[in-house]
Nucleic acid binder design. Structure first.
Length: 854
RNA sequence: GCCCCUGUGGCGGAACUGGUAGACGCGCGGGAUUCAAAAUCCCGUUCCCUUAUGGGAGUGUCGGUUCGAUUCCGACCGGGGGCACCA
């Protein structure tokens, strides 16, 4: 018996697809368009199993949609800028460009072996001047629209990578990549005004009904909209205004002090001639978040000696403290504190012995007996000790205070966001140069459109720490685009998240002179199905949504939301292995001895199996997709990553699992090579009369088509796989008599067409073996005959007091009364009803009969 | 601390809107084929009692609603994720 040769077969079909331009996308086609996109990879050098899973899912969708008659756009590119290229340059003396392009070449080859239905003619790399030059053009557009600005600001400085990190790149006070303790420095930075779109980005979430709720919720929290009252205290000593923001204006009569941030202008001014106070502010600033975590328990402050008057009673004075828990960049950097209603305020008040007056009475408490201990009451209740608010619930009180403030003119309703502007400056070489020039006379001037792209210089050195562009002898010297005098180029480059904020549009017209051709983009966009890792739930996806809106604002597109459907797939996990010396061991080096114990083939040491964890190089619990594809073929790998686990959940990679997938590949091959019974010829007509077995197979065929179709529509690939296994079992059990050969052909062809999106090479090979001259890739999806998916009889369970005691097979439309009579007459049932009284019989047609008897 | 998700055999996981729990795969046990092995095929496989038949228990725990709960409600326990001095 011959065996399926995956390697040779897969190479053959990949060649045929490539030379036939099978997956080339035609934007001018009049078919309905479908854009499926997986998050493009960073060219690290080699693909990993996570990539295989991600791109296989996208590929199933792409191939399925093609079969459904859509014109499909399924492109691939490279998120090619970023720090690892510079690290490689420093460590191995290779140029970042060479390193990156070598990696791209490798990974392209690897991905091609996976057999993706990708239009490779549209491939882009963000480090290509043809790409980043357009990005510079967009950046200047944004600048002209007032969406780009420079600001002196505190930044997170990574002392190891010598770069500025975004807030979100700082994890537990450490750089996300280097792991180094982050410092705070003040630098002039470029910012994108994402906060201009805070409301829109929030409201837009409601329209994204094909996004996971989890991701929408995370974005909602990230944007962090709150409503409250903004009003000015007047500092008694100076007459200065001190604006504060609160979301709890209802607690105004519980106010006991006012707290400002160490970075607040008032604090900064006082620090000038108060060394003690200055030292305190410095302490608040230093240390970063990690140390904050240490002193988290402790709320500390510094009494400025200043006082402010309560807005409802000018004789009521509140002391002004500098407090370490007040942030300058949220709200106004100053608060009024109500210790009874806020834990931080309460901790602070207890420490500095400030008044704590309860103003919200929890339900069930008596006003004269209630007091606050060391726990603030943040719940709902009834206002008291609060003059005109007394008796209201907190919501009514909130509104009442704001209304009064607005009527009396001392405050106003304010909406505040947690979201901050996006700092895009990076002091690095391997990124998109920010296309601006600093001129002594003209200030900051954008580079002229004709002079774009501002290209990175090739001859750079990484010997000194810091930004190589800054060190370059000539690159930054240029002439001012405005006055022509000698000037200096901006040496900051952009955050790589900028690159990935519009690549999906570039894919629509990868060769356009403009960043993209908006007419074509408007036809393809939004992306119908976007697939990627949940780790991008906030940053990348929020930035891309912002960019799309900003591009609309500058008139480059009319698209609102970039991604109509979003799917976030789970990680790929694997057990870990350690040898007796404590070293991590690669799975491929583990051997099982006859007695069941494990050893490494390298050293012979005994190996123990550890926890299942996300595949990572450091723990060596990785498998190389190349090895798998070499041994079993891409189809086997594709089938395995689709089976078993729901796609949004983590997948456990096992040797046994991949073996199982490989067995199924062989089984399909045998089913076609040596079918269980003779097959009818290609296109043979279905006879009018079918034997019982043939009818059953035919029904199974159409039920399976129906099920698999809806499974793929819903991205339930694991269920589609299970159904196909089941169907293969059905085909294997031989049927005889009239129509056996015809139904077997119909079933086998349906099976091959349905595995097409998942195991495309095997499908093509089997399709050809079945006598077809065409490609499965160009064959329409099999049609369901609905009538064949409906059974005329139905099996119903018969329960007594909720326990199943029997099953009956009845006509689908049988009368309730008849069903009941039939059920009660069953011997098994009579055995239980005998001697008892039947109290009640519930008949749910097509489902169940429940007899209540006692 | 706050918010969200999740818990089903030895394992990954099925189960439409409350209606036969455990589909399908893996693993395991038994058998066939083979000189033998690999590969393949067949049968069994939630647990407990039982010779089969049959019965009892069972979807993290404890309660509730219901003729009927993996599904709905409440409390608790375990696992995962997000945010974190956001006023």
């Amino acid at each position: 018996m011959s065996r399926y040769n995956a390697k040779a077969t897969e190479a053959k079909w990949q060649k045929i697809w490539e030379t036939g331009k099978t997956f080339q996308t035609d934007s001018s086609s009049d078919k309905q368009k479908y854009y499926v996109l997986e998050m493009f990879p960073y060219p690290s050098g080699r693909i990993h199993v996570g990539h295989v899973r991600n791109y296989t899912m996208g590929d199933v969708v792409a191939r399925y949609r093609r079969a459904q008659g859509y014109e499909v756009l399924h492109p691939m590119g490279w998120d090619a800028f970023g720090m690892p290229a510079e690290n490689a340059a420093m460590e191995r003396k290779v140029h970042p460009a060479d390193w990156t392009y070598d990696n791209i070449a490798n990974m392209r080859q690897q991905l091609k072996h996976v057999g993706l239905a990708v239009d490779w003619d549209r491939e882009i790399a963000t480090c290509d001047p043809a790409y980043y030059g357009k990005e510079q053009q967009i950046f200047i557009d944004f600048y002209n629209a007032g969406l780009v600005y420079r600001k002196e600001s505190w930044v997170n400085w990574d002392p190891v990578d010598n770069t500025v990190l975004a807030n979100e790149q700082v994890i537990d006070g450490k750089g996300w990549r280097s792991g180094a303790e982050v410092e705070r420095r003040q630098l002039s930075q470029w910012f994108l005004k994402i906060t201009d779109f805070a409301d829109e980005l929030l409201d837009g979430l409601d329209t994204l009904d094909r996004w996971p709720d989890k991701v929408r919720l995370m974005q909602e929290n990230w944007i962090g909209r709150s409503e409250g009252l903004k009003f000015d205290f007047i500092v008694d000593q100076t007459g200065e205004k001190l604006p504060v923001y609160t979301t709890r204006p209802d607690t105004i009569f519980g106010a006991s002090f006012c707290a400002i941030s160490a970075d607040h202008p008032v604090a900064v001014a006082l620090a000038k001639d108060n060394p003690e106070l200055a030292a305190f502010c410095e302490e608040c600033r230093s240390g970063g978040t990690t140390e904050e975590a240490i002193e988290k328990a402790e709320k500390r402050g510094f009494d400025t000696g200043l006082t402010v008057a309560h807005p409802f009673n000018s004789a009521w004075k509140l002391p002004v403290y500098i407090a370490n828990f007040v942030l300058m960049d949220y709200g106004t950097g100053a608060i009024f504190a109500c210790p009874a209603g806020d834990q931080r305020d309460l901790d602070f008040a207890r420490k500095y012995d400030l008044p704590v007056l309860p103003i919200v009475l929890p339900e069930g408490e008596a006003a004269d007996a209630y007091s606050i201990g060391d726990e603030a009451f943040t719940g709902t209740g009834t206002m008291y000790n609060s003059r005109f608010l007394d008796g209201m619930d907190i919501h009514a009180a909130k509104a009442a205070v704001i209304d009064r403030a607005e009527a009396d003119g001392w405050g106003e309703r304010m909406v505040n966001f947690r979201l901050r502007d996006w700092g895009v400056s990076r002091q690095r070489y391997w990124g998109t140069p920010i296309p601006f020039v600093h001129c002594e006379a003209c200030g900051v001037v954008p580079v002229k459109a004709d002079d774009l792209p501002v290209e990175l210089p090739d001859d750079v050195s990484f010997d000194t720490p810091g930004n190589p562009l800054e060190h370059h002898p000539t690159w930054k010297n240029t002439d001012c685009p405005s006055c022509g005098q000698p000037a200096r180029r901006e040496t900051d480059t952009m955050d790589t998240f900028v690159d990935s904020s519009w690549y999906f549009m570039r894919f629509c017209t990868p060769d356009a002179d403009a960043p993209f051709d908006s007419k074509v983009v408007d036809e393809w966009m939004p992306v119908n199905q976007y697939i990627g890792g949940v780790e991008h739930a906030i940053l990348h996806l929020l930035y891309a949504r912002f960019f799309t809106r900003a591009l609309k604002k500058v008139g480059r597109t009319s698209v609102e939301e970039p991604f109509e459907g979003l799917f976030t797939q789970g990680m790929v996990n694997h057990v870990t292995y350690k040898d007796s010396s404590g070293e991590w061991v690669f799975p491929e080096d583990v051997r099982k001895r006859d007695d069941g114990t494990l050893i490494t083939s390298k050293t012979g040491l005994v190996v123990s199996e550890g926890r299942v964890e996300k595949m990572s190089k450091s723990k060596r619990n990785v498998v190389d997709p190349d090895d798998i594809i070499d041994q079993y073929g891409a189809d086997t790998a594709r089938w395995f990553v689709l089976s078993d686990s729901p796609p949004e959940r983590d997948l456990l990679w096992t040797e046994a699992g991949i073996e199982g997938a490989w067995r199924f590949v062989q089984r399909i091959y045998r089913m076609v090579e040596t079918p269980s019974a003779p097959l009818a010829g290609v296109g043979a007509a279905m006879p009018g009369e079918l034997s019982e077995g043939a009818t059953a197979l035919r029904k199974a065929t159409h039920k399976t088509i129906k099920g698999v179709t809806s499974d793929i529509e819903n991205l339930h690939f694991n269920k589609a796989v299970a159904r196909l296994y089941e169907f293969a079992n059905a085909i294997s059990s031989t049927s005889e008599g009239a129509g056996a050969a015809e139904t077997l052909r119909e079933a086998t062809e349906a099976l091959i067409m349905m595995i097409g999106p998942m195991m495309p090479h095997l499908a093509e090979e089997m399709w050809a073996k079945l006598g077809h001259q065409t490609l499965v890739a160009n064959t329409p999806w099999p049609q369901v005959i609905e009538a064949l998916t409906i059974d005329s009889t139905v099996k119903m369970a018969v329960q007594i007091n909720g326990k199943v005691r029997d099953t009956i097979e009845v006509a689908k439309d049988m009368d309730k009364a008849d069903v009941e009579a039939l059920a009660l007459a069953r011997p098994n049932i009579m055995k239980f009803t005998e001697g008892n009284t039947v109290r009640k019989v519930i008949v749910v047609p097509g489902r169940i009969v429940n007899i209540v008897a006692n």
